[in-house]
């Protein structure tokens, strides 16, 4: 029983990353009907931006220009990196996707793959193949609650992830911009006639998704402090699976499926030999999709942003 709760905690942390990244896939699909395959690499860029912001802030702290405690550095890092990475996301949209908006879907899909490769190899060319070690901003504290080991990092990661999802939810349901996004997801053709600036909204969608990816990247750096240019590929693909599993274009579905994927992975590794983890985990997902081909929260023949 203790190990069940321990794994529950493990799965919550692991699922947070999938959920945050999957949201980016899902929002873009909901509004523009395309899968942004570069999203995993945008997550990687976010982690690297976070690394440089954090290192810079730490250097300032050490030199005595400013005196900041570690948690504040982390908070600032998350905010600054989210802002910077949203610019990266908007640039990707402007350069890679907007010129192809009326092109066949396959062209847009391979654009994403190419941008992904450009980001990976660009990083490799700029920074070299050496791994970067994400600076430990907060000291790890381990709490033992009835035999379950929980660290302050785990609590922070899950907390920040849930908080950001809540903020996104409020933004989409309560603000005018959110209303414009929902409108655009509802009908792409009519909405410009109503005076909604679709280019701006498309850029905003990419910006929001990338900001979430940056937050995921930094949290990832806190939990798994080794950054490399290819870190976004596998987690990006798996988060994409979560987005599909949640139901294409469904925000709630993506968040839920992200956590679900984390649970399935962790618990298959617990129950079965860990060698077969992904084999069994993704077979389960295949079975779920066989019975619910539009995902858990998806509807047939519709790509509306459902909230």
């Amino acid at each position: 029983m203790v190990s069940f709760f321990q794994n529950l905690v493990n799965a919550l942390q692991w699922g947070s990353f999938y959920a945050l990244i999957a949201l980016g896939y899902s929002m873009v699909y909901g509004i523009l009907m395309l899968f942004n395959f570069a999203h995993g690499d945008i997550f990687m860029v976010g982690a690297y931006i976070g690394f440089f912001v954090a290192t810079g802030l730490l250097a300032l702290t050490v030199s005595g220009s400013i005196a900041l405690p570690g948690w504040l550095v982390l908070l600032l890092t998350i905010i600054i990196a989210m802002a910077l990475n949203s610019i990266v996301g908007m640039l990707v949209e402007r350069i890679g996707y907007r010129p192809l908006r009326d092109a066949p879907r396959a062209s847009a899909a391979i654009t994403g793959l190419m941008i992904g490769i450009i980001l990976e190899t660009g990083n490799l060319a700029l920074l070299g193949a050496q791994r970067l070690s994400f600076p430990p901003l907060i000291a790890t504290e381990t709490y033992n609650i009835a035999g379950v080991n929980v660290t302050n990092k785990k609590i922070m990661i899950v907390g920040v992830a849930l908080f950001l999802m809540l903020v996104l939810h409020l933004f989409i349901t309560k603000t005018k911009w959110g209303m414009a996004m929902r409108a655009m997801a509802y009908d792409f053709a009519i909405i410009p006639l109503m005076g909604v600036p679709i280019n701006l909204i498309a850029a905003l969608t990419f910006g929001l998704g990338s900001a979430l990816a940056a937050a995921a990247g930094i949290l990832y750096g806190v939990a798994y402090p080794i950054l490399d240019p290819y870190m976004g590929i596998l987690i990006g693909w798996k988060a994409f699976v979560a987005a599909i599993l949640g139901g294409r274009g469904s925000i709630l579905g993506a968040a839920f499926a992200g956590f679900l994927l984390g649970f399935i992975e962790i618990f298959t590794a617990t129950i079965f030999p860990s060698t077969f983890r992904d084999l069994i985990a993704y077979s389960i997902i295949l079975i779920i999709l066989t019975f619910r081909p539009h995902g858990l929260f998806g509807e047939a023949y519709s790509a509306r942003l459902r909230l």
């Binding site: 203790v2 190990s3 321990q6 794994n7 493990n10 942390q13 692991w14 990832y220 939990a223 798994y224 080794i226 290819y230 870190m231 590929i233 596998l234 992975e265 962790i266 618990f267 590794a269 617990t270 030999p273 860990s274 060698t275 983890r277 992904d278």
Partner: peptide
């Protein structure tokens, strides 16, 4: 006798098993 595959970064399930 636990395993994972290249590029994995989260080993919490395997390590929980090992500790138990």
């Amino acid at each position: 006798f636990e395993s994972f595959t290249t590029k994995d970064t989260d080993f919490s399930a395997q390590l929980t098993k090992i500790i138990n």
